[in-house]
Nucleic acid binder design. Structure first.
Lengths: 201, 201
DNA sequence: TGCCATAGTGAACGCTGTTCGTTACGTCTA
DNA sequence: TAGACGTAACGAACAGCGTTCACTATGGCA
């Protein structure tokens, strides 16, 4: 049923594989998702996958990079929203938390502890760099706009750390379920911005 | 070589297994550590392990619970240190970060994303509850001492989130290596405490 | 001395990721 | 039009995994 796929067709097949893989990862975890099961859902044998990805690790890396890109797109879109810096700040925070809870598997894939920092694909490295640069840039903008005080780089990391820490603790079930996450996030943001916004809440 | 081990001996064997398991987990990750390899280091066959732990998941859970206890002990010791609330606050933050970087594998085991929240052992649940209560209690003390402002529960989670977020981002290599972690942590703490300590830095 | 409980064995099962020789088919050439 | 070629996908196989189970061998007790 196949002779000579075009480059676009190959790219499509690879994307389709990543989509199936991500569904399996969301359900069974990265380790629980098996090449055989993914291939079966493609109507294939496991061996066929190796024509498109050199190994399961490579497939996981690619799926992870794709998740990173979706994450970065969300943040970037929020950062391009109108309004002053305060509104932009809230939009980015919202986008961050929204993504994490809308696509928990993707978020976990992105921020999972990494086993072997060394042998990551260039694709994944680039996706990670983009996300990091985005977060740092927006926080630096906030510092320059006077929302945050102190050294921009320090604050950037602290700001990111608060968002990430809250999301992770929430996902791990370590936050009091009685406290709505949104309220919590705004509390943390208020802590970090060292005071209330001039007007409005 | 064995007939009727005493309860203490069984407990010792189980602890020895956990120690070996933790070494393998630190080297190969939770999935990479194999029952056969752990058993081999004990001078055993894999099947023997099942006399002491019902499954690999049970062994991982027990190892995780043990790591939790060591973590809680560190925090608790720091919390019992002398000095005023400011010094205690710093001691706890130091203890937290110290533990994370001294035993990264244990820290990662503790705070790894959980696959199946449902079927955790009672032992693990208890260890998790103890750690959570410890962190919340100390932060509540800080609020009452005037170090932190706002609702104690909210701040407790935000405070924890900052520490955890910083540690995780640092471990994931997402923090600028040029920024010393300690400086970063103090910046974050200063952000959260809404101002400088009255005297000293 | 002989029995019994039991710590640990070793083979087996079904699963995993991965490899490799083979097959079948669309396209391009003679 | 007939055949050769490249290749997408197959299916069997391998080693290693977690786990089970029938079994052995051994030390304490009657």
């Amino acid at each position: 049923m196949a002779v000579l796929l075009t480059k676009e067709q190959v790219a499509d097949v690879r994307q389709k594989i990543r989509e199936v893989a991500e569904r399996h990862i969301a359900r069974d975890g990265p380790q629980g998702a098996s090449m055989r099961a993914i291939a079966a859902e493609m109507g294939w044998t496991a061996a066929s996958l190796y024509r498109y990805y050199a190994s399961k690790a490579a497939l996981l890396d690619a799926t992870r990079a794709a998740a990173y890109e979706r994450f970065s797109n969300c943040i970037e879109t929020a950062g391009q929203s109108g309004g002053d810096m305060w509104e932009k700040s809230r939009a980015i925070g919202d986008a961050y938390a929204d993504f994490a809870f809308r696509e928990p598997a993707a978020y976990q894939l992105i921020f999972a502890f990494e086993q072997d920092e060394a042998d990551k694909s260039a694709e994944l490295r680039a996706a990670q760099a983009r996300a990091g640069n985005l977060m740092t840039r927006y926080v630096r903008d906030m510092v320059e706009a006077g929302l945050l005080e102190g050294d921009a780089d320090h604050i950037a990391h602290a700001y990111w750390a608060v968002l990430h820490g809250l999301v992770v603790l929430q996902m791990a079930g370590k936050l009091d379920p009685a406290l709505p996450f949104d309220t919590l996030r705004h509390s943390a943001a208020r802590l970090i911005t060292r005071g209330a916004r001039p007007s409005g809440h």
